[in-house]
Simulated assay, not measured.
Amino acid sequence: MRKPAALADRAAACGLRPVARGALAIVHASKIADNPDNPGALPVPPDSELSMPVVMSRLLLYVRDVALLKSFYQTHFGFPLSEESENEWAVLKAGAIELALHRVGEPWRERPVHTSTSNAKIVFSLDSGLTELREKLVRAGVRMRDVKRYEGFAQLLCDGEDPEGNVFQLSQAD
């Protein structure tokens, strides 16, 4: 397992840096399109300089309280823990993609938390039960918006916020 400091160094080398509330970084891995372990790999476009297809494997959130968010996503969504460095780093299996929680650096830990200011949204798909899950989350004190539907879009949708204000969406196809 990589140490959180090594991950932060790699993120910095790529020009990524945490911000006050939950910057989002996407970490990807190259996979061969015909790999039976990864049937979702996308083919490389013919004009690409890549020699292999690229797929998204992990979504990383910089957070203030790793234990709080780990508990939130495990309790409300049932995501199992796959990797952890206590209070610094946790990785949860969220279907085909992992949700990684990385503690922000010292300079950002004491800054005020601003909810709903991110330009990113984490989307979780459900086969059924969106309305019931929303009600369960509301009863647990999670900030949730109303269920909505857009004309011409065969989905029920509902946005919410985790304890640090990261916006997530529940999506259920008709």
Results as ranks from 00 to 15, higher is better:
68 L>C: 09
71 S>D: 13
42 L>M: 14
75 T>H: 06
65 D>W: 06
74 Q>C: 04
59 L>R: 02
68 L>E: 11
42 L>Y: 09
72 F>L: 07
76 H>P: 04
54 V>M: 12
78 G>A: 04
36 P>A: 13
56 M>R: 10
46 P>I: 03
70 K>I: 05
71 S>W: 05
69 L>R: 04
56 M>W: 03
77 F>G: 05
59 L>H: 07
43 P>H: 06
73 Y>Q: 10
51 S>F: 05
74 Q>P: 00
46 P>V: 04
37 D>T: 11
57 S>V: 13
47 D>W: 11
54 V>A: 09
37 D>Q: 15
59 L>F: 06
73 Y>W: 15
68 L>Y: 00
54 V>Y: 01
38 N>T: 14
79 F>K: 01
76 H>S: 07
67 A>G: 05
47 D>C: 08
53 P>K: 00
69 L>M: 11
50 L>E: 11
44 V>C: 08
79 F>W: 10
65 D>H: 13
56 M>A: 13
74 Q>M: 13
61 L>H: 03
35 N>A: 14
69 L>T: 03
63 V>K: 01
43 P>C: 08
57 S>D: 12
66 V>L: 07
64 R>L: 11
35 N>K: 11
70 K>P: 01
63 V>G: 01
57 S>T: 15
44 V>L: 08
35 N>C: 15
42 L>H: 10
59 L>M: 13
72 F>W: 07
